[in-house]
Each structure stands twice: as C-alpha cells, then as structure tokens.
Design a protein around this nucleic acid. Structure first.
Length: 613
RNA sequence: GCCCCCGUAGCUCAAUGGACAGAGUAACAGACUUCGAAUCUGGUGGUUGCGCGUUCGACCCGCGCCGGGGGCACCA
C-alpha cells in the first residue's frame, strides 16, 4: 500500500503497476518477492518507489540467479520492468536506479488533489477515521502543597499533546489527572502552616501557591538532622517530627480539625494548578485524587487475596504481596514481587494504582489506558500491568506507560524539598517579558490591545515546543535561554510561518480570486512549491504515526519541516506578484492550504497559531 | 547480581531494515526601496562508543564488551 491515506487515486495506479510487474515476472520465470512501496526520498519531484533487492536475493539463494551480485541483479530487473511498463495514466515518467523502480506522478494532478483536499477539509484535514476504542490518558500528577515546577509542565504538555493526537487520530479520548494530595510530605506543609503561619494568606493565586512551597522548604530544614547538633536542638527537632507524625495519624483517622486545615491549604494548591492548566489550554475530564484512591485501595486488596493472586502475610507481621515472577512461571527475576499493602494495613502507591486501574476499566469503560509518568517508575508500571493481567482484565495488554526523562538543572536534579526548582510560572512570566522586549523591533502592526495576548502565545509557543522537540525518554537539562529562544528550530519559527501565510491571504482578500473552488496547477511548478505540497500531504499519516507510537516528537519534528518548506517557498516564490492570473490564483490556494495545515499541526502541539506577531 | 534507558557533527537533538546519516546552534560569507528578515541562501563540521554476528542492505535487529543514568519488599 502506498502509505498515503488521502490519495486513493494513487492506490489505483499502484495496483495497475503491480499487475504489470507480476505479468512481466511470470513471463520471465522470476519469483517475485512481496512488493513494498515507499515514497521517493529526494525532493524536487515526487513519486512512489519499490525495489527488487529481495527478489534478487531470493534468486541468489535458490541458485537460479544469473551469478550477478544482488544489487546489480536488482537493477537489471528494475530496468527490464521499466522497459515493459509503457505509459500509465497519472504517471509522468518511470526510472530504474540502483535497484529501485521510481514512478513519478503527474505534477499538476498531484498538486491539485492535495490542495483541494486540505481546503475542503479545513480544520478536519488529517483527522483519522473513527476508531471503536476509548482511550484514557492520565497525566499531570503534581503533589499539592508544593507549587508547580517546570518538570510538572513537561508531563502536562506531553500528556496533553498525546491526548490531542490520539483524539485527532480517531479515538474517543478521556483526559485524566491524578494529583497527589496526601502523605507525609503534604502533611509536613499542613503542620508547618498550622504551627507558624496559621491565619496568614498571601494575595494572588500563584503567590499563595508558591508560599506553600516556601513553607515546605522551611519545614524540611527544621526537620532535617544536622551535624553537630546540640542536645537542645536535637530535642526540638524530634519534638517537631513527633508533632508532624501525630498530625498525619490524625488525618488518617479522619480528625475534623486536621482535615479542615488540609482541605483549605489543598484548595490553594489546586487553585494554582487549575490556573496553570488553563494557561496551557488543558481541560481535564476526570480528576482522581490520591486521597480518594486511598479509600478504594483497601477494597481491592481483599479481592486479590480471595482470587489467590495476592498473599497475605499480615498474620506473620508481614505485608500483602504479589509474587509476580512466580505467578507467571518465570525463573529469572524480572517483575519480582510487589508489595500491595503495608503490614499495618495502610495503602501504598501500588494499592492506589491498582484501584484506579480497576475504576478506569469498570466505571469509565476504557479500552486503552496511557500513563504519562517519569521513567523512574518503569518497573512499577510493568508490575501493575502484569497484576492487572493476572487479575483478568483484557485491557491490561493495552496499558501503556509513556515514560519520560526528568527536567534537570545544570547543577543537578530539581528538588521541591530543598526549594531547588524552576517554577513554571516564573518561566512563563519571563517568556512574556522577553517577547514584549523584542516585539517593537521584530513585529509588524500589532494593535496595542493584543500585544500581551500575542506575547503570551509566542512565549508559551517557545516553551512548549522546547519540551516537545526532545524525545520523551531523554532528560532535558533546562536552560532558560534555550527554552525561550525564538530563532531556528522553535515554536515561534512555526508560528511565524503561519503569520506569513496569513499576511499574504489577508492582502489578497482585497483582490479578486479567479477559480476559487478548484486549484489548477497548469504551469511548471518550482521545486519550492513541490516541496511544500509534499510536506502538506504528509500530515495525515504523521498524525497516525505519532498517535500509534505515542510520540509527540514525531509531530513536533513534522511541524518544523512543514514550516521550513513554507519559509523557503515564501522567500523564493512570488504569490501576489505573480504575473499570470492562473499562477497567482493557484499559489494563493497553496498558501491557504499551507496555513491550514500549519494551524492544524500547531493545534495538536498545544501551540496557538496567531494571525500576527 | 538482575532488569530498563541512553551513547550520532564542537554543543543540543533527529533518522525504528533501504538510495549521499539530517536539522538547529556556534563560528564564517551573502540576501531587506521586494507577499513582514522571529526569515532565506551558501560552504565548513561524521570511523553513528568498541567488537563479532544476522541480512542483498544495519545508527536501527542479535550476542559480548566499555562508558553514563535509573530501578530492584512495605517511598512516591
């Protein structure tokens, strides 16, 4: 199959060619290997290509070959096939080179089909056929009480883009988030707030959220054992720690006062989180809270014991465990043993994830479940998925852990506890500042009322793209100057292509467009036009690839290539200044198609496509 | 000890069995009375960590090394 879903016409051509090749092979006693079609790599002219290496290799192995080296024999077959083909409707010429058979498409026909398809589909260009599956993407799992740093932003962006991709690829998609709102580190903040700051409350959502982080850092310092402590200091630190643990115990027992302190401060954190999701244009469908999963967790443990999957060692003072390797009959240790309930009966991360998975399958009826979580939890998720399999959930095979590397600082890993973090909001504000600083020299006529909004879109575009243009399994060493660069392979580069296309169309709006419903490329196209059309035509299959492989990077890389093709075209090919009316009108339609495809790609990348910048 | 990930141009990264391994960045040389220069056009830059294998064909698959990171029973 020629791998381009929008050109059925070329599938017809492919079938005709394949018939001819088969006839030729049969007549010449050649055992043909399966034909694989790809597009011809070199740009400037496009077409489809197949090769005869496999056929030649099979011959050589069977000993019936002509004693030629495989590449030469492949070339010989290609040449003979070429000579036999004759003319084919829609194909402008055929060549045999280096063992490949290359078929070049009739330029005007290909161009017309691409451009018309884009303009007819509009915002839906590239959308996949509906798939009969419901997908849940779980991402953005910050701890409450700790403020939102640039590492959290990476998960949020990766998850959102993945959700947009699978949705556009045709899957029904549910977005879910799972904030960590309980546990000792959360209670540490509640304790320090109660002890030192009760009644205080800074103005402003982000100021308040960041203030909680400051309290956390202070509390950690107070509770950390130091060298050369005096006996008084040791006693004080231990007393603090005892208070904190007592507060955790009370929280767990449902003490109303502690719960109220916790609830209020938690809400401050969630206010900040919701505001940041809003800035990133992320709309969550489902909110799972760790504190709620905690309650669900205790129920599923009994079920797993009853089913003989888990073993209860509490009678001997041990925890509840699942011996995964043993259950799977593995001799070498791979999944090992997972503890799913502490010996004191309290839940673990594993308990809660198992309970959540069950709820995803039973309450939300998801067929496919994606977890966007950092790579340190690789084993954890492998264990969870295997237990779900043992549990009998068929969806277990369609659970996927999108594991990503950390965002680190040049001086090392970020640490909320130590306050060594780069906050998302700081970078965001800095981004806007930098855009505004260069707007006066770089921008065209932006109305005063839109300046800030455009600056937000450009600044965020740079930040978001910098997170997406690195493959998810790699760490990112965060460098503000790199993340907020506006030149080269960046978000603003792609946005600028959209702006330029828009600018041409806006100017053309006052002119009369001939033949507005069909594109007629009845002139010799430049290589820049051909390259641009080629890139546009790749969009639909790029959507499918990125969604199938769960890789936002694929779309990010594509968007750059598309913008690059447009910028080159823009520079070299006159549109409004074309002499002939037919050329101008065809190129205008091409510009409109490029703008639409850029807008669609940017939307999938969670980057705004401004009209001016 | 076992498992997972990574190693590609000075630097940051692409390329998931096909044609000369590509971008950005940095440095250098050019292009704005022109549809907007956040742009474009050049040349420079490579033993794809090492070895062996599979294959007509390997950055890609297998085995073994070397180097870096992460994980492996009651943290999340």
């Amino acid at each position: 199959m020629f791998p381009d879903i929008i050109f059925k016409m070329f599938n017809d051509i492919q079938q005709i060619i394949e018939e001819k090749i088969k006839t030729y092979a049969a007549a010449n006693d050649i055992t043909l290997a399966a034909l694989k079609w790809t597009s011809i790599p070199f740009s400037g002219e496009w077409g489809m290509s197949t090769s005869f290496f496999q056929t030649a290799a099979d011959e050589a192995r069977a000993g019936k070959g002509k004693k030629l080296p495989v590449p030469q024999r492949a070339q010989e077959i290609a040449e003979q096939v070429r000579a036999q083909l004759g003319s084919v409707e829609g194909i402008s010429r055929v060549e045999a080179v280096k063992g490949y058979l290359n078929l070049y498409f009739t330029t005007s026909e290909y161009a017309r089909r691409v451009v018309d398809e884009v303009l007819a589909s509009g915002a839906g260009f590239g959308r996949g056929a509906p798939k009969d599956e419901r997908v849940m993407v779980e991402y953005a799992q910050p701890n409450t009480h700790h403020s939102f740093h640039i590492g959290h932003a990476r998960t949020a962006i990766l998850g959102e883009v993945l959700a947009r991709l699978v949705e556009f690829a045709g899957f029904e998609t549910i977005r879910a988030t799972y904030p960590g709102d309980m546990g000792l580190s959360v209670i540490t903040v509640v304790w320090a707030y109660y002890k030192f700051y009760k009644g205080q409350e800074p103005e402003g959502i982000h100021e308040r959220g960041q203030w909680l982080l400051k309290i956390y850092v202070e509390a950690t310092t107070l509770l950390e054992k130091k060298e050369n402590e005096t006996p008084e200091e040791t006693a004080k630190r231990e007393a603090y720690d005892a208070e904190r643990r007592e507060m955790l115990r009370k929280w767990d027992a449902g003490d109303p006062y502690v719960h109220e302190l916790w609830r209020v401060t938690r809400e401050w954190s969630l206010d900040e989180f919701r505001d940041i999701l809003n800035l990133l244009d992320i709309k969550m469908d489902v909110w799972f809270y760790e504190s709620e999963a905690n309650k669900l967790g205790k129920e599923i443990v009994d079920e797993l014991i009853a089913k003989g999957i888990a073993e209860d060692e509490r009678a001997q003072g041990g925890p509840v465990i699942v011996k995964i390797d043993e259950k799977l009959g593995l001799t070498k240790e791979k999944y090992r043993t997972m503890v799913i309930l502490r010996s004191d009966g309290t839940t673990l991360y594993s308990t809660k994830d198992l309970a959540l998975a069950k709820q995803k399958f039973e309450k939300y009826h998801v067929d496919r479940s994606i977890y966007v979580v950092d790579f340190r939890q690789n084993l954890h998720f492998q264990q969870i998925f295997k237990i779900l399999e043992l549990w009998g959930f068929p969806q277990a095979s369609k659970c996927y852990h999108l594991s990503y590397g950390y965002v680190t600082l040049p001086e090392g890993a970020m640490s909320s506890r130590r306050g060594r973090v780069v906050l998302f909001k700081e970078v965001y504000d800095e981004a806007i500042k930098r855009v505004l600083a260069v707007e006066s020299e770089r921008s065209g006529n932006i109305p005063e009322s839109e300046r800030t909004q455009i600056a937000e879109q450009i600044g965020l575009g740079a930040l978001v793209y910098s997170m997406l243009s690195v493959d998810n399994n790699k760490d990112i060493v965060f460098d503000v100057n790199e993340a907020l660069s506006f030149d080269g392979r960046t978000g603003p580069y792609i946005q600028n292509a959209h702006v330029r296309a828009n600018s041409i169309l806006k100017k053309a709006g006052t002119q009369k467009l001939e033949g507005a419903n069909v594109s007629t490329f009845d002139y010799e196209l430049t290589k820049h036009e051909i390259e641009l059309i080629e890139q546009i035509s790749r969009f639909p299959k790029t959507v499918q690839q990125a969604a199938n492989e769960y890789r936002p990077l694929v779309m990010a890389a594509y968007a750059y290539d598309l913008a690059n093709a447009f910028h080159s075209f823009y520079h070299a090919v006159p549109v409004l200044q074309s002499e002939e009316a037919n050329v101008r009108s065809a190129r205008l339609r091409l510009v409109a198609a490029a703008k639409q495809t850029l807008a669609n790609a940017l939307r999938l990348l969670d980057i705004k496509a401004p009209a001016v910048m």
